[in-house]
Amino acid sequence: MEKELIDNVCEEKIYERIYDNHSEAINNYFYYKFGDREMAEESVQEAFIKLWENCKKVPFGKAKSFLYTVANNLSLNRYKHKKVVLKYANSVPQQTQDNQSPDYKMEEQEFKLKLEKAIQNLSEKQRVAFLLHRIDGKSYKEIAEILNISVKAVEKRMQKALESLREEIDAFK
């Protein structure tokens, strides 16, 4: 009985827990893809409403993949791709605290800008995989699940992403 209860996504508590665990990742995934905050949040909404409507058919264990499947199938043609704008955290502990000459700071600032621009110019597939790993800290396995591809394919995307980023950044040197 207990297990059945846990399995039931229609249960408010369970549903909320699923939202708590996955909503942000889905949101970020869509943000990395399209660069549109509004659209990302709307996708989260739609995916979770679909989950609620199908709560009797979706066991707890399948909820995550259901959400991503729905999200991937949403018709998002009405949205235009925007630039993915990212922000550097202010409170990052500086590894090179002792080495903060003005020159260094300027160089760092310059690099950060170049990196952001280079990320914007990545292909959608590479960018999504790269940012899920770097920002959301998803493992390659998790990314593979989200994108519904193999881990090897994720590794390939990461490899390609790194190569393109380096090439673009070094090209402006």
Partner: peptide, 27 residues
């Protein structure tokens, strides 16, 4: 060198803004 920097700085990005509670309320 560049690759190392990419690795370092790309870990410094903030997560995108997400109004988690607001979106849940709308759902």
């Amino acid at each position: 060198d560049t690759l190392k920097k990419i690795k370092q700085y790309s870990a410094q990005f903030e997560k995108p803004k997400f109004s988690k509670d607001e979106v849940f309320r709308q759902i």
